[in-house]
Design a protein around this nucleic acid. Structure first.
Lengths: 107, 107
DNA sequence: ATTTTGTGCAACTAAATAATTGCACATATA
DNA sequence: TATATGTGCAATTATTTAGTTGCACAAAAT
């Protein structure tokens, strides 16, 4: 088991998902973000670090404040992965239910 | 930290993602699935259990064999969550880059 | 110049996670 | 009936994860 740091691991945590949604409103500093949650600033900071490592947020420093913004390009990776499933649910003739039911009659 | 068992946690693991993709081909038994990986049958079985708990796969028993199939409806939940981000990357006038750059001039 | 503010980083803890091993049990097959 | 096969479940272990506390340091504000 290696350290995973990809977009799927990033969105696995509900707090991180909430942060990402928050950042769709505007770029924010860690303190800004932390105000929206019950956890400490440091805990939020760690989440931001993970989001940074997998490049789903980027930062811009303004004086001593650091604004974090969402990187939509990275979010697209999820969308791309979903593609093959989306194709299936858009195609009613390809329902697995039918495939599975057929197994019975084949036996 | 509570036990999380949702679709986002389910797809966080690369093996589970691979299982889901495998199941887009056809419904499979745990042994079938395990043949595609380097881990043990039991390890795969645990992944299947997690996928079952969050209802992204369902099962149908045929004799002593249990066929697992993907539940596309659950996959849609990811798609729905992505919706708000998709809206953003489809709208070039709403780029956060611009919002952030404006912060500098406002100061 | 002193204090306050905004931030990152390190050490530590508690909990969750992934994987192994071994077993039980039902259903097939010989 | 005896054996082989397919599966789930429990116990155990190593690793990862999320969160807390405390500190350092730079940039603002007083």
């Amino acid at each position: 088991m290696k350290v995973r740091r990809d977009i799927f691991q990033a969105i696995a945590d509900p707090t991180r998902r909430a942060i990402l949604i928050l950042l769709t409103t505007s770029a924010m500093t860690p303190n800004n973000i932390a105000e929206h949650f019950n956890t400490s600033r440091q805990a939020v900071s760690k989440h931001i670090q993970i989001l940074s490592e997998c490049e789903v947020v980027s930062q811009k420093q303004l004086g001593r404040e650091i604004y974090y913004q969402i990187e939509l390009e990275k979010m697209k990776e999820i969308d791309i992965w979903l593609e093959r499933f989306r194709k299936m649910w858009e195609d009613r003739f390809n329902q697995l239910d039918d495939l599975l039911d057929n197994l019975k009659t084949e036996k």
